[in-house]
Computed example of a mutant assay.
Amino acid sequence: MISQFVNPAKRKKRLLGELHDFPSGTMAIGRLDVPSEGLLLLTTDGKISEKIRSSQFEKEYYVQVDGNIDDEAVEKLKKGVEIGFNGKKYITKLGKAFLIEDPKFPLRSQKIRDERHGPTSWVAIIIREGKFRQVRKMTAAVGFPTLRLIRIRIGTIKLNNLKVAEVIKVDTLL
């Protein structure tokens, strides 16, 4: 599924608008790329969308990476790493990162891989920016490619506190 309401690239994926009869003008606040999962906020207010996508709000991700990520790599993630963005080199802004235990999310419908391919580990990454595929590029830059990416928080809204398709008032964030 694509986390948008229009499909200009004409990909053969379902769109959000096919799930529910949303009000006219509904938009996703910060998209998730096709292989990513997690919290997605929707709004009909472009100003709220812009504000939440800004650096005012933290975005937290749980990331399963290929291999046993070490403290040195986690420190690099916190301090900022060089990634490519719009054909140029970019140093990510300071953020937060720490090792976490396997959060035991339900299995994906598309299997990533299994233990025969070597160990995996989990890291939490908290950023205030959101460049194109930034978290995936960050983990690859420190030598641990992303296998699974789940956004669990935007600002104070947490995935584990919500039910699927739950409606909340986002003006409580502002």
Rank of each mutant, 00 (worst) to 15 (best):
D45S: 14
G46P: 06
I48W: 02
I48V: 13
S54R: 00
F57G: 08
E58H: 00
K59Q: 05
K59C: 07
E60M: 03
E60R: 03
V63R: 00
V63H: 01
V63P: 02
Q64N: 09
D66S: 14
G67A: 12
G67M: 15
N68V: 06
I69K: 00
I69G: 09
D70H: 02
E72R: 00
E72T: 04
A73G: 09
V74K: 01
V74Y: 01
V74N: 01
L77H: 09
L77N: 09
K78L: 07
G80Y: 08
G80P: 12
G80I: 10
V81M: 12
I83R: 03
I83N: 07
F85C: 13
G87Y: 07
G87K: 09
K89S: 04
I91K: 15
I91V: 15
T92Q: 12
L94S: 10
L94V: 11
G95Q: 04
G95V: 12
G95K: 01
A97F: 00
F98E: 11
F98Q: 03
E101G: 01
D102A: 05
P103L: 07
K104L: 10
K104H: 10
F105Y: 11
F105H: 09
P106F: 09
P106D: 08
P106R: 05
S109T: 04
Q110D: 05
I112E: 10
R113N: 15
R113F: 05
R113W: 12
D114F: 11
E115A: 14
R116C: 06
R116N: 15
R116A: 13
H117W: 15
H117F: 15
T120L: 01
T120C: 10
W122K: 05
W122N: 04
V123W: 00
I125C: 14
I126T: 07
I126L: 05
I127K: 06
I127E: 03
R128H: 09
R128V: 00
G130D: 04
G130Y: 06
K131R: 13
K131E: 03
K131L: 14
F132M: 08
Q134N: 10
V135F: 11
M138K: 02
T139D: 10
F144N: 13
P145L: 14
P145H: 11
